[in-house]
């Protein structure tokens, strides 16, 4: 009697095992299909098929990889909020410290890419403070450097990259960009002292000379009016013409410095996007 019971139990186990085996195989195939779709850059279908896999097999062994790949696919389609949602799900379902780390880095990279760099810095700080990731400090700093680049803080980017041995190219680039950038406050300050000097500093010579000329003309007429005791004329010229051109000169100096800085930053970003071979956000 005991023997019959045992054999029934074994048969039951076999059937159960077989059922699981059937499912496993087809889900394997589905997972392999999604890998192929991803490698073919068919990101829309990758997401669809991975969602299908997760829907029918929510507790599968692929759950981390599936969420991570969905996140990556959304990121490729510039659906950054969706990407972060799925990277977070990947982190929740991570089975090892490495998987947790990779998910967080993925989230940080998306935050860098969409320029929510404050969030990226906070996440990087929390990673750095976590003792489980003490051996990853260089990599954490690498992404911190990128966050500084996207925050348009090339000086700190250069300092951060300089602390990592393998990032000479990025260090040199960030330092060069930082050196090339115009100081907006300096441009404004020298324009306060000599109208047009800020524009000349940013390379806008004609605009600078014109600004200087207008300010000399209206300044001369204002002073001459006061000397000739035409006080009302003097006040009106000073208020409506001289001050107007003086203020315009300051605004122009600031505007030109910002525009030139944008061109320099964009040129560097263009290089990073198309020519830089290393890891990018």
């Amino acid at each position: 009697m005991v023997f019959v019971m045992k054999s029934n139990y074994i048969i039951f186990l076999i059937i159960l095992f077989e059922c699981t085996l059937f499912a496993q195989n087809s889900f394997d195939e589905q997972f392999n299909l999604t890998k192929k779709l991803y490698s073919d850059e068919n990101y829309f279908d990758t997401v669809t098929e991975l969602k299908r896999l997760l829907f029918f097999n929510p507790n599968s062994e692929y759950i981390y990889s599936a969420y991570e790949t969905i996140g990556k696919s959304y990121k490729q389609g510039a659906k950054f909020s969706d990407a972060i949602r799925y990277f977070t799900l990947a982190e929740i379902n991570a089975l090892s410290v490495d998987e947790i780390y990779n998910s967080r880095i993925d989230i940080i990279r998306v935050n860098i890419l969409r320029r929510t760099t404050d969030r990226a810095f906070k996440l990087l700080d929390s990673l750095e403070a976590d003792i489980r990731f003490n051996d990853k400090i260089d990599e954490i700093n690498y992404w911190r450097g990128w966050a500084f680049i996207f925050a348009d803080d090339w000086e700190n980017a250069a300092v951060t990259f300089a602390g990592i041995d393998s990032t000479i190219e990025l260090t040199v680039l960030a330092k060069k960009v930082d050196d090339d950038l115009y100081s907006v406050s300096f441009a404004k300050t020298i324009s306060y002292i000599i109208p047009g000097a800020g524009q000349i500093y940013t390379g806008e010579y004609i605009s600078g000379l014109l600004s200087l000329g207008w300010n000399i003309l209206w300044g001369y007429l204002t002073i001459k009016s006061f000397i000739d005791e035409r006080i009302f004329d003097g006040i009106v010229i000073a208020n409506f013409l001289w001050l107007r051109f003086y203020r315009g000169n300051l605004q122009n100096a600031e505007k030109f410095a910002k525009e030139k800085n944008l061109i320099i930053s964009n040129k560097a970003m263009n290089y990073l996007q198309f020519e830089f071979k290393g890891l990018k956000p």
């Binding site: 054999s7 074994i10 499912a23 087809s26």
Partner: peptide, 30 residues
């Protein structure tokens, strides 16, 4: 009997993947 059963089980599972009737993702109900 158990030994025989186990033998068949091993045989069956080793051949099984090639003949698996997959979970049908494309069935209308799914």
């Amino acid at each position: 009997k158990i030994t025989e059963l186990l033998f068949f089980f091993m045989l069956f599972t080793s051949v099984n993947p090639a003949q698996t009737k997959d979970f049908d993702f494309s069935s209308p109900i799914n």
